[in-house]
Design a protein around this nucleic acid. Sequence first.
RNA 1: GGCGAGUUACCCAAGCGGCCAAAGGGAUCUGACUGUAAAUCAGACUGCAUUGCAUUCGGGGGUUCGAAUCCCUCACUCGCCA
Length: 427
Amino acid sequence: MILATQQNDPSFEDVWEELTWRGLVHVSTDQAALKELLAGEPITYYCGFDPTAPSLHLGNLVQLLTMRRLQLAGHRPLGLVGGSTGLIGDPRPTAERTLNTKETVAEWVGRLQEQVSRFLSREGENPVRLVNNLDWTAGLSAIDFLRDIGKYYRVGTMLKKDAVASRLNSDAGISYTEFSYQILQGFDYLELHRQYGCVLQTGGSDQWGNLTSGTDLIHRVEGRHVHAIGTPLITNSDGTKFGKSEGNAIWLDAEMCTPYRFYQFWLNTDDADVIARLKVFTFLSRAEIEELERLVEAEPFRRAAQRRLAVEVTTLVHGAEATDAVIAASEALFGKGDLGALDAATLRSALEELPNATVAAGTPVLDALLATGLVSSLGEGRRAIAQGGVTVDGVKVDGSAVIDGALPGGVTVLRRGKKTLAGVFIG
RNA sequence: GGCGAGUUACCCAAGCGGCCAAAGGGAUCUGACUGUAAAUCAGACUGCAUUGCAUUCGGGGGUUCGAAUCCCUCACUCGCCA
């Protein structure tokens, strides 16, 4: 099991130093107090994940790995999946969310709980405990909520939270529902503090307003100072959004984002970003990462850091077996050699890692492009061909080409652009 | 409750009766150059199709030979006043 192989880097004085070095602390409550707290006796901490999709994505992975690092340092994690907050919706800066049905949210809760539990150990002294905020909010009446919790919140403060303020300044406005979200999240922290003695919440820095909602509430109600850490939003150095590939989010679920695509995503990381990614997304030691940093500098064309990053993160999320398969497929398909020189079995399993389709022999390329999902319409396919961006078995083609399964094993490799591939089987 | 402003393609944003499938920017895709990188340059970017057709400019209805552009109505958003 991969969890057993993970460890924090002993060369750091304590876990706080390591988190800082990895660039995982963007904002936090009192730093000196936090450092001391984390270096001392085991504490209980939590991080929440709202079921807004059937799977977690790379942004959530940052949180999961941060939690894991704290667990490795001996602290006790609470993995919260927001069965109730997911029904309300955290205000995004741009627009109001569409509410999902209760059934959908409940199903997603189950899926996310399964994912969360994969990244945190259930063994030993400090196993992860999964909690669901629906457990303490479902039976709460609106009146009790307003009397017992609402009374502690000042609207002036709530309006100043970035998420709320930006929405009030936009054309989208904000519903009362989403406006209330910060109270619910604050209440979660209070509840976990009471039930489990939780004294630290981690989350993305975009959640800072919600994190402090909890620390403030606990201070007011219980008179205790508790903590919060906001991890930075991961951004690409070229200004584009991190964690997207062809406009789609990179999901942790293998059905929603294949291990092949996942691996390729990391392999294509910019030189300028790869070291920062290694720090955040892998358990490699400081010495190992510094060595890779030298290699990026000395021989960037080898992309040693990108390869290592891709292997590490893919193994973490999809396991060693799947990773071996996608590495083999990637080498077969992107290798310098002639595709026709590969043996049938290697080629076939490589194509199975790709988006693929089965078509009749003699099918025009255009239809095959559509069938494999390489393009989303015939017009787009024509355009791609006209731009010279389509190859069949590595040879540039025009619209008259057909699928013939000429490679060993009777298969065909279809490529759009430089690195978007699909497999075609004859059937 | 009253008054005013607004809703355009993935995002921002022009257009204000025909020349608008709709300017511009961003994102994205493709090509060249490369290292399955970045930057740069070039092209593409509603769908189907032989310079043609169909469907788009919040929803619905209307005026007109003709509407994203005018009118009515509904929904939503923002602002000011109560």
